[in-house]
């Protein structure tokens, strides 16, 4: 699994809806209070679609994908 980007969460914006953790259980766990805790920040290509879905569905725009400058996918939804 080759990482193509890094995931991040803006903790100030996050409301703990947990959608990101549901979509990416491999990378994100929920803490005692239902807030997402990133356990692996490297995003493998296999999970890119799920991550983009999380980015779209996160109600507070708190879930972020940071692509390295050269690999920015052209068709970002």
């Amino acid at each position: 699994m080759k990482p193509i980007a890094k995931i991040a969460i803006n903790p100030i914006a996050c409301d703990g809806h947990g959608i990101c953790a549901e979509l990416l259980p491999e990378l994100i766990h929920l803490d005692d209070w239902g807030y997402p805790k990133i356990v692996h920040e490297d995003l493998p290509i296999e999970l890119l679609d799920h991550a983009r879905k999380a980015e779209r569905l996160c109600p507070t725009l708190a879930f972020l994908i940071h692509y390295p400058p050269s690999s920015q996918p052209i068709h970002r939804l």
């Binding site: 903790p11 100030i12 996050c14 703990g16 803490d31 005692d32 209070w33 239902g34 807030y35 805790k37």
Partner: peptide
């Protein structure tokens, strides 16, 4: 009161 791990975690 903005981040869950802070406003819920610290009182715990």
């Amino acid at each position: 009161g903005q981040c869950g791990p802070c406003f819920l975690g610290l009182p715990a």
